[in-house]
Nucleic acid binder design. Sequence first.
DNA 1: CGAAGTTATCGAATCGATTCGATCGAACCG
DNA 2: CGGTTCGATCGAATCGATTCGATAACTTCG
Lengths: 354, 354
Amino acid sequence: MDDEATAARPRPNLAAVAALAGVSPSTASLAFSGSGPVSIATRERVLAAAAQLDYAGPDPRAQSLRRGRSGIIGVVIEDRLRDAFRDPMNIAMLDGIADETGSLGAGLLLLTENGEGAASIRNAPVDAVVLIGCSPSLAAQVAIFRQRGIALVAIEAEPMDEVLAIDLDNRSASHTLARHLSDLGHWRVAMVTLPLDAARTRGVLTEAGITVSTGYTALERIRGVREVFADAPGMMAAASSIDEGLIAGLAVLSEPSTRPTAVIAQSDLLAVGVIRAAEQLGLVVPHDLSIVGFDGVKLDGIAPYDLTTMVQPAVEKGRAAGRGVIALLGGEHPRPVCFTSRFHLGTTTAPPAG
Amino acid sequence: MDDEATAARPRPNLAAVAALAGVSPSTASLAFSGSGPVSIATRERVLAAAAQLDYAGPDPRAQSLRRGRSGIIGVVIEDRLRDAFRDPMNIAMLDGIADETGSLGAGLLLLTENGEGAASIRNAPVDAVVLIGCSPSLAAQVAIFRQRGIALVAIEAEPMDEVLAIDLDNRSASHTLARHLSDLGHWRVAMVTLPLDAARTRGVLTEAGITVSTGYTALERIRGVREVFADAPGMMAAASSIDEGLIAGLAVLSEPSTRPTAVIAQSDLLAVGVIRAAEQLGLVVPHDLSIVGFDGVKLDGIAPYDLTTMVQPAVEKGRAAGRGVIALLGGEHPRPVCFTSRFHLGTTTAPPAG
DNA sequence: CGAAGTTATCGAATCGATTCGATCGAACCG
DNA sequence: CGGTTCGATCGAATCGATTCGATAACTTCG
């Protein structure tokens, strides 16, 4: 009964509508798309026939085959959505992309690179792809998309051929932060970094680890710091989150003899975690320990700190990526963009106590 | 030069590969899909030809037309991604959906219902759609998808025909919280609710507002509370966030003469905001004011409270929705699911002071 | 050695719409 | 009044793959 009701009602197609309206399929198509000369009477007849048949409009699958465009933009996210969306910067970028590409029609397709997700990278019917953040298998992904002839935009990734780069001044921004601490008189400075490799290994930052790293953003930020503090040690976090900042912060601060007077965290969330760690160890910020972050996340609701940080235009980065996608699809050759971060002096930095 | 390089390289299709390999397109298709008897020699010849032409595999657009399936699952999100993803529950659900539907192939397509997004609802090449949370235009959306013959799953929405419901025990869970406060001796209890209408109106909860409301979850939670406190007043927030909780909290608590002894916030984030409001007004939680939330968000990193709340299985809800999608696409008739929340006694509730 | 049964391959129809070029009729102009 | 032009409509090809039924070759068994 139920099955019959469902199965016995095959979706009508444009040809059926055209037949009922007494016109050819081509005319019916014209009537729907609005492009091309169709008399008002005919159009209304077609629309009436469509209504009578409960026709929902042209099948997007057929359209995308014929037009060679699906209207879908892919966004490649790291393994788990949960992890990716924990970082407010990623959400902001996604929002910016959605803002600009909304007019294209279909929407944003979330693609993950893990396991069975590889299939999604190979099979997704996307017109263009935005690569958010750096991924271990970035090169492999880019190769696949290139072979498929799909337009590519990468946010904060190493420059690559045929990939439109949307970059951030990670290195000089980090330099600015380091310089700020240096100016205050700090010289024992440690870093808490974003993940450097695919495995998101926690632990001490080593030169070997840097060499094989695939984390472009993290690397650039390290380089910026080391332009000022050439030997600054570091601790790698497994993600950009408060929890991870706490873990890394405890590791960095727990040993009093090697305790730095300032910590440069590669994200605001990590910085908040480091502050927590400091508090747990009885250190007063900024008296005993200066802390800087990166991103400019609004912490109003999250933590009662005014963090010294570099504010980056995350939504704007997403918008630029979205505009880049549109330009590429329009056959243009947009130029790469590099955004600059703005220094924000908060209350978490001060001259070293000693 | 560049244009020539790009334009002069039309993507090869399966027919071209077949021609080069000296077989028919049908055989080449068999060789790629692996379904059907193809001799090893032939398959290798086809694959070699594909490699030679730099063929990236069957075009997903053509496949989806032929097969009638795109492998894409749509997820309808409220207006702005930013707003939707501010709520950890939504992220958790999305993650659960992704978990279960990952095997389907293409990925999750984010659909928004605003302005031009309406086009995306009408045109998205999706096989099924998960409606997350309640939307003002839910009925209209459902009508469109139904007409298009797209399988529907709704998380926490009013029961509708041909829509698989994944529900939560919002009413009885809220009853439990209210009962908890009642048992402690509270009788002047106020609510801070999730948005009740499309406009996300802030302000005093009115009976008229309840009547025209489209916010299923918010309504159910109100009903649960009013089973215990029949006349409990409320303040509507514009979103589930700490900021909004602060605003609503200040509104509820600022007038000492009408100040409640307990506040039932409809989400943990709202509850944290209300606690902030209480602190700003010099009230001590839980001595001067008891506060309960809803959701069971991990606040470890966000706020130093152990909130009394109902813990809901958000990821599991998403998983159930994902399984529902798969079942529906498999032609099954899955039964609706209703999850239950678990009471968590924290340190934000106590008997009233007076 | 011929009938029955496999196995590999091919042809052609099909999915549903778009679009270019052709056609037909009517209005317009000299 | 005949030729031209413009507008509306139609036919047919096309997008790229999948899949069913047919065919051919080849094995197996009586």
